[in-house]
Design a protein around this nucleic acid. Structure first.
Length: 381
DNA sequence: AAAGCGGGGCA
DNA sequence: TGCCCAGCTTT
């Protein structure tokens, strides 16, 4: 079988398989470019099952370009809470505002215009152009690179930008006339459902017969991929500061800086513990006073005077590049030190919240879990 | 080219 | 419990 026929066989069989087996996903029920856009941004680095409930809530609250463009950023961040990579949400809203103003609310349909939008890279541009507008542009994500590297036995490192370019050229050639949207989704669907990263289900694959990796017994070896560096460890001490008086039943939360990790999200006040404190790292209820002092000093710099009371819990959280090992300590406010409950002002990036008031602030999952556990333990008593 | 940026699923 | 997944932006 020559090269052209092998490609034609692949495209035809794959497309036919997709039309018979495609999942009924919320964003496949519409060709609204705005909905396709939202789904594609949410699906970056994120599984379908995770995205579905977020997608429903998001389009219900922001049904149009105008609705999202005019929404407060905190509302958008709150609806993204738990989904991760929060710059996606801020970039999406920024880009939607641009579409609202510059394109009168119509998502552009040219490669140059759509690629200029914040948060829209080569994959997302291709996905929107092909799925919403049926333009013959490739949409190469991890699924597609895995499928193509196996079927065509491509042994280039898929982490290299050059490999993605190569895959895009190949993927574009494979698109049958007039079927770009379905064909691109077919490639991704095969990668998600059949040609999986581990233990691919080759026996049900519509193109198994001519899969080069399968013929070579290499399907588990591909794609070739350089290993990522392990996350660097960090120790942290967080304070659960219980309010009294007017703030009884509430705890103090803090907003993170405008830029960087978890930008503008809310958290428990906390501090990094230098590794020089290795011996003192508390792993249980026997928290060490010197670490309490560290936390007290750190918060004092932000004019928050606290008194550590007792150890509450341990939490671990892994980002792609950092691993947090965190001890959480129950604290009370120090009487007579700013800010007190007697009407002194908190810094603006601090707030008192109870379980109900938390609904107005977006938290990373790690702090959400701690706070929920804390309020649950309070209501039990 | 490399690093920063979350969170969840699976064997 | 350890390993895997991987798109866009910034440096």
């Amino acid at each position: 079988m020559d090269k052209t026929h092998k490609q034609q066989y692949f495209s035809t069989e794959l497309l036919s398989w997709y039309l018979r087996h495609r999942r009924d996903l919320p964003w496949r029920r519409s060709k609204n470019p705005y909905y396709i856009w939202i789904s594609e941004v949410m699906l970056q680095q994120t599984r379908v099952d995770t995205v579905i409930p977020y997608f429903h809530r998001f389009v219900e609250r922001f049904p149009t370009v105008q609705a999202l463009a005019e929404a407060p950023e905190e509302d958008v961040l709150k609806l993204w809470e738990g989904l991760g990579y929060y710059s996606r949400a801020r970039n999406l809203q920024g880009a939607v505002r641009e579409v609202h103003e510059r394109y009168e609310g119509t998502v552009p349909n040219t490669k140059a215009e759509i690629s200029s939008l914040r948060g829209v890279g080569p994959y997302t541009a291709g996905a929107i152009l092909s799925i919403a507008y049926n333009k013959p542009e490739p949409a190469v994500d991890g699924n597609v690179m895995r499928v193509l590297s196996r079927y065509f036995l491509i042994e280039e490192d898929i982490m290299k930008p050059k490999t993605r370019i190569l895959m895009e050229k190949l993927a574009q050639k494979l698109i049958p006339e007039g079927t770009a949207g379905d064909f691109n989704q077919a490639l991704m669907e095969l990668g998600a459902m059949v040609c999986k990263p581990r233990s691919p289900i080759c026996l049900t694959c519509p193109v198994m017969e001519h899969c080069a990796a399968r013929e070579a017994g290499m399907e588990e070896e591909l794609p070739i991929k350089k290993k990522a560096k392990p996350p660097r460890p960090e120790w942290r001490m967080a304070a659960l500061i219980a309010g009294s008086g007017d703030h009884a039943g509430k705890v103090l939360i803090r907003q993170r800086p405008q830029e960087g990790l978890l930008a503008r999200m809310w958290e428990l006040p906390h501090t990094e513990v230098p590794f020089s404190y290795k011996e003192a790292q508390p792993s249980s209820a026997e928290a060490v006073p010197v670490l309490f002092d560290l936390l007290v000093e750190q918060l004092a710099e932000e004019t928050i005077g606290v008194v550590p009371e007792r150890w509450f819990m341990h939490a671990e959280h892994t980002f792609s590049h950092i691993h947090w090992d965190m001890q959480i300590v129950l604290c009370s406010m120090e009487p007579g030190v700013l800010p007190t409950d007697a009407g002194m002002l908190l810094p603006t990036h601090y707030q008192w919240v109870d379980s109900k008031a938390m609904e107005a602030y977006a938290f990373p999952n790690v702090f959400l879990k701690i706070l929920n556990q804390y309020f649950a333990s309070c209501s039990k008593k």
